[in-house]
Amino acid sequence: MQPAKVALSLILREYFLIGITGFGGGLQGRFYHLAVSKHGWLNEEEFADINATASLAPGGNASNVGLEIARRLRGLAGLVTAYLCLVVPGSLVMIGLGTTYEYYQDEPAVRGALQGLQCAATALILYSATKLNLSQWTFADYLLAFGACLAIFFLKAPLWTVLPGGALLSLALRRWGGRP
């Protein structure tokens, strides 16, 4: 299923647009619109497959969907182009914001706004946790989640022990509980 060749310049333009306007989540919907509705690069089935692939790889799920679309269209060149378009504009904005903040950090309103942003960041992270199919969870899953949080946040255990260890424990519990 090799789709028609899409020009790199078109990928550049479309991803740059998403890179400068894609704020705080909601990126996945943008990529669906781009690839399925707007350009017809992919059909529903291919998009679902891309979604599954994106979740198997590390990195942000939404941006992985976008990157995998670009990779299917133009291989490694498409992937790298898409990555740069998504990350470079935001990084420049970030550095600008950071420098501006340092300049005005004695202003109480600016400090307060940043404290407000910290609340927004906390809310956004918790929101992504609510999207993990909580309805299908067993008691053991909640225990595992609690254990992982405890190990990382309170015990400061390194990631390379918590992640594989947690995965093995979870796999064992699933097998023991007779779940696929």
């Binding site: 941006s63 990350v87 504009p89 935001g90 904005v93 550095i95 914001l97 910290q118």
Partner: peptide, 15 residues
């Protein structure tokens, strides 16, 4: 936290 006020994936905070 500044990254939630900037466009793009949140990995841009690393920059």
């Amino acid at each position: 936290s500044l990254a939630v006020g900037a466009p793009g994936p949140n990995a841009i905070f690393l920059s």
